[in-house]
Simulated assay, not measured.
Amino acid sequence: MTTTPRSPRLLLLSTVVLAVTGVALLGVPHGQEQPSPAPPAHATTAPSSAANVPPASKPSAGTAPSTPSAASTPSAVESALPPHGEGVAGDPAVQRNLEAAWPADLPSNDERELLADGRSLLRADATGVGRAKWPEVFHDSDQAVAPAFATARFRIQAAIARRDGSPDKAVVHLVWAGTDRGGTFTDLRITDWFFTRTFQKGAATWTPQPRT
């Protein structure tokens, strides 16, 4: 089988092009690169979660985390959220966004109490650990309950406690990550726990609202 020889004119043209290219490269100062073309723009989708929905949205206490609509998402909060799968390193950014989106409005001692109780309730709800402490919330606390999430792969990424429309009502807004029984890991989950302040013998206590 034979091939047709290349045209001498084509070879000459190729040589000229290579020569011009070499001269142009010599004119670029050493160590200076030519700017690369700007990448094409792509539409992006903000991650769901943390700081996407203010506590005022009031999902049912202890219910499965939900992802709010983009219409209620503060753009400033979205832009600073870490990407999904960032791990523990991204948790401080989630906490900062929560605090920036909803400034503190409770006395520090009330906030500490609510945060401790909210974290305990979420852990008990997700992993089954510590349900006996909250019989008014978990009516099955005296029964063996298969945990929905593995204790070893559960972590609270961020939490805030804020008033819920009244000085005697509050909500603890938590963002968390966990691996479910099917082995699927998901972060930036959202759960709200609601509390009312009651007074017994002159002492104020924050009581979690029972499930409905």
Results as ranks from 00 to 15, higher is better:
205 T>D: 06
3 T>I: 13
76 A>W: 12
203 A>S: 14
201 K>N: 15
24 A>D: 01
142 D>H: 09
148 A>Y: 03
156 I>D: 01
133 K>T: 15
12 L>S: 15
206 W>N: 07
120 S>R: 12
62 G>M: 02
137 V>M: 10
73 T>W: 09
127 T>N: 05
190 I>V: 10
101 A>F: 03
100 A>G: 09
174 L>M: 07
207 T>E: 05
27 G>R: 13
29 P>K: 01
164 D>V: 01
129 V>P: 00
3 T>V: 14
13 L>W: 11
75 S>N: 09
88 V>K: 11
182 G>E: 02
205 T>R: 15
14 S>C: 14
115 L>C: 02
166 S>I: 05
159 A>P: 05
140 D>W: 05
7 S>L: 11
75 S>T: 13
80 A>C: 08
167 P>E: 08
185 F>Y: 15
94 V>K: 11
202 G>C: 07
171 V>A: 13
26 L>N: 07
126 A>F: 07
167 P>R: 08
7 S>F: 12
167 P>W: 10
173 H>N: 11
74 P>V: 08
7 S>P: 01
83 P>R: 05
163 R>N: 07
184 T>K: 14
63 T>F: 07
152 A>Y: 07
44 T>H: 09
43 A>N: 12
207 T>D: 00
182 G>P: 00
149 F>M: 00
118 G>I: 06
38 A>I: 00
116 A>S: 12
129 V>M: 06
131 R>I: 10
88 V>I: 04
167 P>T: 06
187 D>V: 05
139 H>S: 14
29 P>Q: 02
115 L>Y: 05
25 L>T: 11
63 T>A: 14
79 S>K: 15
127 T>W: 03
26 L>G: 11
105 D>R: 04
118 G>Q: 02
21 T>F: 14
27 G>D: 08
11 L>W: 08
37 P>L: 08
142 D>T: 14
48 S>F: 07
140 D>A: 09
199 F>V: 15
10 L>D: 11
207 T>I: 10
15 T>K: 12
124 A>D: 04
86 E>D: 06
54 P>M: 06
212 T>Q: 13
205 T>A: 14
105 D>I: 10
191 T>Y: 01
64 A>Y: 14
175 V>Q: 02
178 G>P: 02
169 K>W: 07
174 L>Y: 07
13 L>N: 04
114 L>N: 06
121 L>D: 01
43 A>R: 14
73 T>C: 02
212 T>I: 05
194 F>L: 05
98 L>G: 04
57 S>I: 14
89 A>F: 03
135 P>I: 11
197 R>I: 03
179 T>H: 01
33 E>F: 07
89 A>S: 13
171 V>E: 04
180 D>R: 06
94 V>D: 00
1 M>H: 10
208 P>E: 00
141 S>T: 13
168 D>F: 07
84 H>Y: 02
2 T>V: 10
205 T>L: 09
147 P>R: 04
93 A>N: 04
1 M>E: 02
11 L>H: 11
138 F>E: 00
6 R>V: 13
135 P>G: 13
150 A>Y: 03
33 E>C: 11
136 E>L: 12
202 G>T: 06
20 V>E: 00
114 L>I: 07
77 V>T: 15
